[in-house]
Design a protein around this nucleic acid. Structure first.
Lengths: 204, 204
DNA sequence: CCAAGATTTGAACGCCGTTCAAGACATGAA
DNA sequence: TTCATGTCTTGAACGGCGTTCAAATCTTGG
């Protein structure tokens, strides 16, 4: 075992993130235990802190990976559709919203940890993590721009954010199993209804 | 100190919830520590578990109180407005949404703990807690019923839930300080825009 | 082959929620 | 009043957690 240091570290980091991702997918963020992870990748307990500053950083790295996969899912949903007419734009927004719902459902625990990261009060999140978030909004902003060409860019960004947030809220409550369960198809219908209504409202 | 047991217990429970509420309002759910709370109300550490089964139950009781206050805030916002025409109904929905935003902002940490309760996998939440949630949806359902009188009750309930969820999502992302800050007035405008657009969409 | 530096190790620390044997206390009968 | 009995309260102790750091182990250039 004598690969160059940095390479070895890189491999250890990747293995660690893999293990953490598996653990979170299985049992949520609450099951991210230092001792388990160290055992998973075959190092001593203290060794974790040579790879990663603390478990929060690790959760953040897993989240970044999850955000990446989410972005791919939204891209796949977008690219399948044309974007020429206003109708196309609306259909794309619906498709993106549906893709968001399905990603959240298929990656429930990982998706939830995206919003359970509580960075220690003072510290801001790394720029690479913030960038991932902005990329998501852009998925929405692109078709939206076609619907409201008169808005300036800041307004468009804000509108995209709002639409994203609304869909996010519906998905969040819809997948919250401590409330009355809503069938997936009903959830899809509600999301579509709400996106179309909002788009209609945009024109006025 | 010789009040009847149940009375004494009731007082201890109230004091405990008070202390927990103060702690959460100050530092979020993460600062709900058994030893601090025991000191706050002047009992021994172990004594907590005579009053409450565990800290989760305590967080739930604080949340119930918070939901109660939220309900009052929404009621106050509703009662200030007439409810006769369709326009009245829309205005009420906007007012309720705005009241929700302001409550969340003014009670940030307490409001957030409403959604951070992670009951141990298997156990369902007590009925008294579930009822509080349904009461909230009813605030939205009442004016909504006036807008869509043709829907049956189940459909109306679902629509109310969806509208509530959409507003909730906008508020959640809007108050998330790890993203770009959005001014309060902009948030209000976005919420109003989205509620009105949705209402317009309802008619079609 | 060795010395010096880098890396890994796991025992130990401090903090946490929760438990439970032991002590303090109240109550009613004698 | 005195004591026995049942109830409530106490805080030391337990097991588990994230994190640290002196010591052990490896790696490497001379």
């Amino acid at each position: 075992m004598n690969a160059p240091l940095s390479e070895r570290r890189q491999a250890q980091l990747a293995a660690l993130i893999d293990a953490a991702e598996r653990r979170i997918a299985e049992g949520g963020m609450a099951s991210l235990k230092a001792r388990d992870l160290a055992a998973d990748i075959g190092i001593a307990l203290g060794g974790l802190y040579n790879i990663v500053a603390d478990l929060d950083e690790l959760a953040l790295r897993v989240s970044s990976r999850t955000l990446g996969r989410l972005g791919e899912a939204l891209t796949a949903a977008s690219d399948a559709l044309p974007l020429e007419s206003r109708d196309d734009a609306v259909n794309r927004l619906v498709a993106i919203a549906h893709a968001y719902l399905h990603f959240a459902r298929d990656n429930l625990k990982l998706w939830r940890t995206l919003f359970e990261l509580h960075l220690a009060e003072g510290t801001a999140l790394p720029t690479w993590a913030a960038d991932d978030q902005l990329r998501l909004f852009r998925h929405v902003a692109e078709p939206l721009a076609l619907l409201v060409p008169t808005m300036d860019e800041a307004q468009q960004a804000l509108a995209a954010r709002t639409l994203f947030a609304a869909v996010h809220g519906i998905v969040t409550l819809g997948l919250e199993e401590r409330l009355v369960a809503v069938p997936l198809t009903a959830l899809e219908a509600q999301i579509e209804w709400m996106v179309r209504a909002t788009c209609r409202g945009l024109g006025e």
